[in-house]
Structure formats: structure tokens, C-alpha cells
């Protein structure tokens, strides 16, 4: 059953009764959340989902999602909240099993929009094969939220022999990325008030756990996985460098970048290395495994443009250095906050 078979049919808007614990809330849960997200665990209808015990090591990750605009080219807050948490679980090398979802709704938010978001979540969860097993809804007064906030939590299991950790990142290892950078951030910026521009670029928001599964099966000894979301590639690599107390050397020419993302960044004065991704991963592995892993990534639809972009070096200052496409060298720094468009 896909989203098209279940068109949004709710009208009106969220009001305080939807979070009041009474019949209005029960109706909303039944007509919206259960209707679209239905699965055996959610349909138990209890406050807590009863799940079968798993063997081995469990991972849990939680992520709050706030985004403006709520609907953007290539996705919306619903699909993003599923993909984001699935990816956080997957970056432990894990197979995600279950998701939970908590909604904070703002009074006055159109129910039709909420339904679109929930349908989008349902579609994303179904495509990923991971059910949303329990949830919660609260309503805040108008002006105290930004339409809708969604917090999702994911649970998964890590296969034996897989040990993803910054502690295992060592000089000499290779750094890989699963595809082009900056797509998500540029798609969002293109819709931002007073900056609008037209582009075919869509958010890369996607679940990466099947890509990760293929990767850890081929090379169980992968040292590190991380999805370069907010702050982009530069923030993620700097975080890893500081956690592992190493440096890295990158080759700018090897980093995949779509021409339109490049153009949008030139227009707004942004560095694509700092622009967010929602469907890409960084992988660090032994140099000898890099080519094998690259082939596995490229064979997967979510890693078709994967590339080896650099290697780990010894560096007490934990700097990420890059040979520029021009032939010089520079540091790749991480940003304090959001990268603002500039005119000079």
C-alpha cells in the first residue's frame, strides 16, 4: 500500500483538544497515526510496545527533527525523521529493527499537512522495512512551536565482529564517502525566504542501513561510519579527528559535488563542505580494504557515486587538511554555527 492509495482526507487544524487526552485525541490517533502507520506492534494499542527479545548487542539512538520549510524538494519532516534516526542506528554498523515517534504539534497546524507528513513517515518506514512501534502526541499553544516537531528513536542490533568506533581510526586508513555532498542543504536553502532560487537539486534524504549492511558484510572490520548531516562533511571529519586524535588529508578533486550544488554555493558564498547531507555516509577503513569497499558501495543504489576522498594521518593538532583542486593546500575547518549566505 503506498501513499497514493491513502490520500490525505483530514480537514481542519490541530487544536488543544488533540493533546488533551480525551476523545478528540483518541480520534486523531486512530484516524491518523494508526491508520497510516499500522503494524502488529503499534496495533497492540498499549502505551508501551511489547517486542521480542533480541540476542547480541543492541544500539539505540534518538533524534529530534525541526526543519523549515516542513516540505522541501526531495522530502519532508516526516521522511527525514525516519531516515535520520535509521541512519544514526545504522552508523553503529547495526541493523535497525524498530522506531518510535513523538510529535509536538502547534495549535492551528493544518491536519491535512499533518496527514501528509504521517503518510510520508509511513512510506519511509515501510520502504526501510522498520516499523514505528509506539508513539506520543502533544499539542502546544499557537506561537510556541513551528508547526510540528518530531522526535524519533531507533533500536537495532549490531552483528558480531563489527566494532565501529572513533577509537579504531588510525593513521594510514582510507576515508570514503558514499556520494555527492551538499544536496540536502542546497535543496532547503532554495526554499528559504528571501533567498529563493530554482534548482532541480533535491534533498538526498534516504535510509542508508541496507548500504551499511552490504558494507559490513564485505568488510566487517570497518573502523568508523558517520553520516555528515548538519555542518556537512567538514564538521563530521573534524569530530572524528578530535575523537580519534588524528588528522586527515583530503583530495578536493575526489569529493563528489553536483554542478548545481557547486553553482548554488558559489551564488550564496557557501562552502559545500559545510553544507548538510541527509543520505550520505563517511566510512573509514584499512587502506587495503578501501577498493573492495568502494566496489560494494558503488554497486548499491545509495552509494553509486561513492569515492575515496583521503586518508588518515598522524596530527596532534587534529587538523583536516586538503589539497585543493587548484594544487594548493588548506585546512578544512568546522563552523561554529550555521553557515550564513554572504555577499562579500
Amino acid at each position: 500500500m503506498n501513499a497514493l492509495e491513502r490520500p490525505a482526507r483530514l480537514t481542519g487544524s490541530v487544536d488543544m483538544t488533540h493533546g488533551g487526552g480525551g476523545r478528540a485525541m483518541a480520534d486523531l490517533i486512530r484516524d491518523l497515526f494508526q491508520r497510516h502507520l499500522s503494524n502488529a506492534f503499534l496495533d497492540q494499542g498499549n502505551d508501551a510496545a511489547l517486542l521480542p527479545a533480541e540476542t547480541g548487542r543492541l544500539v539505540v539512538s534518538t533524534d529530534g527533527h525541526v526543519i523549515s520549510p516542513l516540505f522541501f524538494p526531495g522530502g519532508d519532516i516526516g521522511s527525514l525523521s525516519v531516515h535520520g534516526t535509521l541512519n544514526d542506528v545504522a552508523m553503529a554498523g547495526a541493523k535497525p529493527l524498530y522506531l518510535t515517534a513523538g510529535f509536538i504539534l502547534e495549535e492551528g497546524f493544518p491536519l491535512a499537512d499533518l496527514e501528509r507528513i504521517v503518510i510520508s513517515m509511513a512510506t519511509a518506514a515501510r520502504e526501510a522495512g522498520v516499523p514505528i512501534v509506539t508513539g506520543d502526541t502533544k499539542v502546544v499553544e499557537k506561537g510556541k512551536g513551528d508547526g510540528v516537531f518530531i522526535t524519533t528513536t531507533g533500536v537495532g542490533t549490531v552483528p558480531d565482529g563489527v566494532e565501529i568506533s572513533a577509537k579504531r581510526v588510525k593513521p594510514g586508513q582510507a576515508v570514503l564517502i558514499s556520494g555527492s555532498i551538499g544536496d540536502h542543504g542546497v535543496a532547503i536553502l532554495s526554499k528559504r525566504e528571501n533567498l529563493e532560487f530554482e534548482t532541480e537539486i533535491r534533498s538526498d534524504s534516504a535510509a542508508l542501513h541496507t548500504l551499511v549492511a552490504a558494507m559490513v558484510e564485505a568488510v566487517p572490520g570497518i573502523a568508523m561510519l558517520r553520516d555528515p548531516t548538519r555542518g556537512g562533511l567538514s564538521a563530521t571529519l573534524n569530530e572524528i579527528a578530535h575523537a580519534a586524535q588524528i588528522g586527515m588529508k583530503l583530495d578536493e578533486a575526489a569529493i563528489p559535488l553536483k554542478p548545481d550544488v557547486h553553482a548554488a554555493c558559489e551564488l550564496l558564498g557557501l562552502d559545500p563542505l559545510n553544507v548538510a547531507n541527509e543520505g550520505k555516509l563517511i566510512c573509514i577503513c584499512e587502506a587495503g580494504d578501501a577498493e573492495k569497499l568502494l566496489a560494494v558501495m558503488r554497486a548499491h543504489p545509495k552509494g553509486a557515486d561513492a569515492a575515496i576522498i583521503g586518508h588518515v594521518v598522524e596530527d596532534d593538532a587534529c587538523l583536516i587538511q586538503m589539497e585543493t583542486g587548484f594544487g594548493g593546500a588548506r585546512v578544512v575547518d568546522w563552523l561554529a554555527g550555521e553557515q550564513l549566505p554572504r555577499i562579500c
Binding site: 589539497e323 585543493t324 583542486g325 587548484f326 594544487g327 594548493g328 593546500a329 588548506r330 562579500c344
Partner: peptide, 30 residues
């Protein structure tokens, strides 16, 4: 500042001999 930015962003000084030095000027309106 646009030149300053380009010189650092692309690592232009790496392509210069030791006896050519850039002195950064005040041309940054901010």
C-alpha cells in the same frame, strides 16, 4: 578581502616562490 579569501581558499601561496609575499589589505567592508 576577496583576494585574501581566494589566496587561502585555493592555497595560492603554495604556488608562489618564497620571495613573493602577500600583504592583506583593508578591502573587507564588514
Amino acid at each position: 578581502g576577496g583576494h585574501t579569501h581566494a589566496i587561502f581558499r585555493y592555497g595560492v601561496q603554495d604556488l608562489m616562490p618564497d620571495n613573493v609575499e602577500f600583504v592583506h589589505g583593508p578591502g573587507c567592508p564588514v
